[in-house]
Design a protein around this nucleic acid. Structure first.
Length: 809
RNA sequence: GGGCGGGUGGUGGAAUUGGUAUACACGCAGGACUUAAAAUCCUGUGGCCGUAAGGCUGUGAGGGUUCAAGUCCCUCCCCGCCCACCA
């Protein structure tokens, strides 16, 4: 029977039904068995899966199935990150309800995932928009609220005018909304925050434990958390009692400070300019900056604008009086919102100083250019050098001076040694409908009151019309807003903001451990058994946001005493993007390939095999339809082998084929163990297939091995072949992964290359571990070698055991 | 501007971490089978010279270390990703 398109469909749907019927991938907490938790970043249910999903989930599935065959109790769950704005947009567009739209998409997505043959435990399938799930979001929020980790504050926030909602700092990409790319503006609002900054030290320190994460992801997190050591220095304002506290990481340049810059929003600005001739100009500049969005302020031409405020301050270390400016390049949110400017050794200060014709003073000598004057500098000198013009510190290297000056200033009470973090608290309120309601009630008498736990979930009302305009949609639902205060029973109002959807995905991996538990957020025994996730797989785009938030939540759960581990993901794999003609495959570019089309033409096994063969998982993958046919041909060939050659001959397999068989097991297993190099794993299987084709002896053992090795990659056809081979195991998914015999890999003769003066001139066949004297004779006897080495004096004779001989003449 | 990856045949990609560069596949060319096509199978396939044997050359460019360099060191060019006024 040829392996045709119709056969593929029949085979694949047959085995998908079989797995369903037998619950092949259902697992239970069982402390007697070693566990392995494989997780992919769950999808947003847009309805259709794309090639990115296919790649991500295929990688995960192959790992899960491999671990199963190795005897692990493998947890491999799936769910849907179902809250979020596309559902609202679709609701507006199609005049439907976000819930209806989302559940329809989930059903569709569910079917598509099944068609790929992924080994999910479907009993754990979940959607974050289910009340049984988001109830626990509210539970977490209340636990955080109790501990002061969830709090409300007024501040200038990122606002996306198109999405009509606030955004976290992490959601602003190049000044635009991460979802719709509209320019983000600033707005003063009262919003809910999570105090992720309290965990900043742990989030930074524990990165060291994540030695099985890609180093660049660790580095990205490290930069995002942004710990900097420095000094806070007090500059006294002349003719005033006010002090300006500046933060610097460069105390070694303190003697070079020639002016001070405050952020326009700095509270001292208004105080210091009140009633002065400069007041008008200063206020005008402050207002101008306030109208500029933060994103605009931080991007664009980056020309540094600012004005002199008419006041001066004294540098404590040398009593020099210097002018005070306000400048838009100083940010109120970072450090103290004020800096000491050292134009000679900071490029931003240099540009500002040139623009405003401010003084320059060199305090670090460029060893390559020791005699340069400040006036002659074309840019700031920011590298290392010895201190000059710095009083008692002259001559000291600046790295050493950083520590010495910091200590000295501390002892003189000029300043204090401090640490600043770049990480800000996480803004979680969204003025949207399709998200988890924040479980808070506002009472005129009792103030801000948390919803009691027994009243959870606070369900999303269904009677809300989504218009996309005018603040929180929930505010328009009277039945939702109006409530009674849990404390005093008087009429009160509910919070109408919903939670950012990143909240939902920050702990779903824990929920999977006991997805149907209605009593608790997750079973503690289940979590203790399954967690942490052994292998997590997803896109690099989540390197900061999702992974940082998940780490934060995990640490919080540990502090609650619910779990004992403090990092959720042991090993992280970030899969590369899928490209077509050199560009990322995307809907907006219109260069997508629909997985469905490939499925109907070639089936899931071929698609899976191709997507793994075309590139290593972490690299970009260039989509080539012709490669698909190659994978199809390979599966077909193996199928024909089982059909036509299995159990057709008597006798023993030849030693050569046995060696190839063992070699294939070793290589494929190694490809798994050494960084999931599926492309080479597949090539090793192809090598074995080629050897079987050529073999004249009994091929039964080799075919069995090949089918077993292939099982994680192409599970449907592997099951079919396994059945054709008359195997008793109910499913190849639980068959044992083959083991190799090191002894079978040995050969009686090996080929060694012989080089003369670095060029290969011949090859000799020798027994393994032949003695050097013998090798010398054999090598020189080779005609190709003799031609170059015969009459010459041999200067060196180098042997790389069992590989190569290098003769220098 | 800073950080991190990369650059290997016509294409996707291998190379045991200093040891025979181009495994495996795609594509292409020639052949077999066929009335024919598809499918399948066989052979060849980095470049240059040569009928051949063989020789020279070759991993972005240039230099270096070494018996030996895709791999290590220096200088430069190009591409991708991430972060970007964080003091």
């Amino acid at each position: 029977m040829p392996y045709t398109t119709n056969d593929i469909r029949a085979i694949e749907s047959k085995w998908q039904k079989f797995w369903d019927k037998h619950h092949t991938f259902r697992v239970h907490t069982d402390s007697a068995k070693p566990k392995y938790y494989v997780l992919e970043m769950f999808p947003y249910p847009s309805g259709k899966i794309h090639m990115g999903h296919v790649r991500n989930y295929t990688i995960a599935d192959v790992i899960a199935r491999y671990k199963m065959m190795q005897g692990f109790n493998v947890l491999h769950p799936i769910g849907y990150d179902a809250f979020g704005q596309p559902a609202e947009n679709a609701a507006i567009k199609n005049k439907t309800n976000p819930a209806d739209w989302t559940y329809k998409c989930i059903a569709q997505m569910h079917d598509e995932l099944k068609k790929m043959g992924f080994s999910y435990d479907w009993d754990r399938e979940l959607s974050t928009c289910d009340a049984e799930y988001y109830k626990w979001n509210q539970w977490i929020f209340l636990k955080m609220f109790e501990r002061g980790l969830a709090y409300k504050k007024a501040s200038s926030v990122n606002w996306c005018p198109d999405c009509a909602t606030t955004l976290a700092n992490e959601e602003v990409i190049n000044g635009g909304c991460w979802r719709c790319k509209s320019v983000v503006v600033q707005k003063d609002l009262e919003q809910w925050y999570l105090k992720i900054t309290q965990y900043a030290p742990a989030l930074l320190d524990d990165l060291q434990k994540l030695d099985q994460w890609p180093s660049r992801v660790r580095l990205m997190q490290e930069n995002w958390i942004g710990k900097s050591y420095g000094v806070e220095i007090l500059f006294k304002v002349t003719d005033s009692q006010e002090m300006i506290k500046v933060f610097t990481t460069r105390p070694d340049t303190i003697f070079g400070a020639t002016y001070v810059v405050l952020a326009p929003e700095h509270p001292l600005v208004k105080k210091l300019t009140a009633g002065t001739p400069q007041e008008k100009d200063v206020l005008a500049f402050v207002e101008k900056t306030a109208n500029k969005s933060k994103s605009l302020r931080m991007s664009g031409d980056q020309r540094k604008e600012g004005v002199f405020i008419g006041r001066h301050a004294v540098n404590p270390v040398n009593n020099v009086t210097i002018p005070i400016y306000i400048g838009d390049y100083v940010l109120m949110e970072y450090g103290t919102g004020a800096i000491m400017a050292v134009p000679t050794h900071d490029q931003r200060d240099f540009e500002f100083a040139k623009e405003h014709k401010l003084a320059l003073r060199i305090v670090i000598q460029d060893p390559k250019n020791p005699d340069i004057t400040a006036e002659a500098m074309a840019q700031a000198y920011v590298d290392e050098g010895a201190l000059v013009n710095s009083g008692e510190f002259n001559g000291i290297g600046n790295e050493e001076a950083k520590k010495k000056i910091a200590e000295w200033m501390k002892s003189k009470h000029y300043g204090s040694i401090t640490v600043h973090w770049r990480l800000r608290d996480w803004l979680i309120s969204r003025q949207r409908y399709w998200g988890t309601p924040i479980p808070i009630i506002y009472c005129e008498h009792c103030g801000t009151v948390p919803v009691p736990y027994q009243q959870l979930p606070v369900e999303l009302p269904k009677d809300v019309e989504i218009t996309g305009e005018g603040g929180s949609p929930l505010a328009r639902s009277r039945g939702f807003v109006e409530c009674t205060c849990p404390k005093c029973n008087k009429p009160a109002r509910r919070e109408t903001d919903t939670m950012a959807t990143f909240f939902d995905s920050s702990w779903y991996f824990l929920r999977f451990c006991s997805a149907r538990n209605n009593e608790e957020i997750f079973g503690q025994k289940d979590a203790a058994y399954w967690m942490p996730v052994d292998q997590y797989i997803g896109g690099i785009e989540h390197a900061i946001l999702h992974l940082l938030y998940s780490r934060f939540f995990t640490k919080f759960f540990k502090d609650l005493g619910l779990i004992t581990m403090d990092e959720p993901f042991v090993r992280l794999l970030t899969q590369g993007m899928v490209l077509k003609e050199g560009e990322v495959m995307s809907k907006s570019r219109g260069n997508t390939v629909d997985p469905d089309e490939v499925l109907s033409k070639f089936g899931a096994d071929t698609l899976r095999l191709f997507i793994l063969f075309a590139a290593p998982p972490e690299d970009q993958l260039e989509w080539q339809s012709s490669g698909l046919e190659g994978s199809w041909r390979f599966l077909n060939r193996v199928y024909q082998m089982v059909e036509k050659r299995y159990k057709q001959t008597e006798g023993e397999p030849g030693a050569d084929l046995e060696r190839e068989r063992n070699k294939a097991i070793k290589s494929v297993t190694q490809s798994f163990e050494e960084g999931y190099k599926f492309n080479t794993a597949i090539s090793h299987m192809m090598v074995l297939a080629n050897a079987i084709d050529k073999a004249k002896t009994n091929v039964d053992a080799a075919i069995e091995t090949l089918v077993l090795l292939l099982a994680p990659f192409a599970p449907h056809v592997a099951e079919e072949m396994w059945q054709m081979m008359g195997k008793k195991d109910a499913t190849i998914a639980h068959a044992a992964w083959p083991v190799f015999d090191e002894a079978a890999l040995k050969t009686s003769t090996i080929t060694m290359a012989v080089q003369v003066n670095g060029k290969v001139r011949g090859q000799i066949q020798v027994a393994p571990d032949t003695a050097q004297d013998e090798l010398r004779k054999l090598a020189l006897a080779d005609p190709g070698v003799a031609k170059y080495a015969q009459d010459a004096t041999i200067k060196k004779f180098i042997v790389v055991p069992n590989k190569l001989i290098s003769i220098v003449v």
